[in-house]
């Protein structure tokens, strides 16, 4: 056990865990930030995506020690009022079915939109192929990302 200092969604936390504990389980079990999901544990499905220094890392294989002292953003902190363009677009397009994978989808899409503000379908597919949706909402995810791009452009 060791104390690891974390900055998550702008708030400082100190957690007393084995430094090799994956960030996912620190978020879920120790900090009660359960929007980040466990899907496979081997970085294969994308349900656990969070932003570490702005990158869409898979928290299930990211040791908490790697996140120490760095900026971590989870779905709960993506926007202050739940109104990130992607969250608005997801609502408007009514993307989710079961909803379990969607926070990971949104966190991945956020990095895409930051780097390519107006992505094509092909660019969306390239960026989102790492996130499995078992319900098959991929078409709506595509549509919502396009809509979020529009919303983002309007805000700018």
């Amino acid at each position: 056990m060791a104390t690891t200092k974390l900055k998550i969604n702008g708030k400082e936390h100190a957690v007393d865990v084995d430094p090799s504990t994956p960030l996912l389980w620190v978020l879920r079990d120790h900090l009660n930030l359960v929007g980040t999901k466990y899907g496979c544990g081997v970085a294969s499905c994308g349900a656990c995506v969070v932003h570490l220094e702005g990158e869409a890392v898979r928290s299930c294989v990211t040791k908490v020690s790697r996140a120490a002292g760095k900026e971590v953003v989870t779905i709960e902190g993506l926007s202050e009022n739940g109104d990130h363009p992607l969250q608005q677009a997801w609502e408007q397009v009514d993307v989710p079915q079961c909803g379990y994978c969607q926070s990971g989808q949104i966190m991945s899409a956020a990095v895409l939109l930051r780097e390519i503000p107006n992505p094509t379908d092909e660019e969306i597919d390239l960026a989102m192929t790492g996130n499995i949706c078992r319900c098959g909402t991929y078409l709506r995810i595509r549509k919502a990302i396009h809509l979020a791009a529009e919303i983002q452009n309007e805000i700018k």
Binding site: A43, V57, V61, K63, A109, L112, A127, N131
Partner: peptide
């Protein structure tokens, strides 16, 4: 998951290599 090479070979967009590949092998 079709990660792309990217300019520097370190992946791009949501799939930069280091998003999943740590500084050492993940166990299991």
């Amino acid at each position: 998951m079709l990660p792309q090479r990217g300019k520097e070979g370190k992946g791009m967009l949501t799939m930069k290599c280091a998003n999943c590949h740590q500084s050492e092998n993940t166990r299991g």
